[in-house]
Amino acid sequence: MEAFLISTGIVTLAEMGDKTQLLALVLAARFKRPWPIVAGIFVATVLNHALAGAVGAWVMAAIGPDVMRWVLGISFIAMAAWMLIPDKLDEDDMPPRRGMGVFVATTWAFFLAEMGDKTQIATVALGAQYEPLVAVVIGTTLGMMLANAPVVFFGDKLTRRVPIKLVHGIAALIFAVLGVLTLLGVGKSFIG
Results as ranks from 00 to 15, higher is better:
A78Q: 09
A78R: 07
A78T: 12
M79Q: 14
M79I: 13
A80I: 14
A80T: 11
A81R: 15
A81I: 15
A81W: 15
W82V: 14
W82G: 04
M83W: 02
L84C: 11
P86A: 11
P86I: 09
P86T: 10
D87L: 05
D87I: 09
L89Y: 04
D90S: 14
E91D: 12
D92R: 11
D92H: 09
M94Q: 07
P96N: 10
R97V: 10
R97S: 13
G99L: 07
G99Q: 12
M100W: 12
M100R: 15
M100Q: 14
V102L: 08
V102K: 11
F103C: 14
A105F: 09
T107N: 09
T107S: 14
T107K: 08
W108A: 13
W108V: 13
W108N: 13
A109F: 07
F110T: 04
F111C: 03
F111T: 06
F111D: 02
L112Q: 05
A113D: 02
E114D: 12
M115C: 08
G116K: 09
D117F: 07
D117Q: 05
D117K: 05
D117H: 04
K118Y: 01
K118S: 06
K118N: 14
T119H: 05
Q120H: 03
I121F: 05
A122Q: 01
T123G: 01
V124S: 00
V124F: 00
L126C: 02
G127L: 02
G127V: 04
G127Q: 03
G127C: 03
A128P: 09
Q129I: 10
Q129F: 05
Y130T: 02
P132S: 07
L133C: 02
L133Y: 00
L133G: 01
V134E: 13
V134R: 10
V134Q: 08
V134L: 14
A135T: 01
V136C: 04
V136P: 04
V136D: 01
V136F: 00
V137R: 01
V137E: 00
V137F: 01
I138Y: 05
I138G: 09
I138S: 08
G139I: 06
G139L: 10
T141S: 11
L142R: 05
L142I: 12
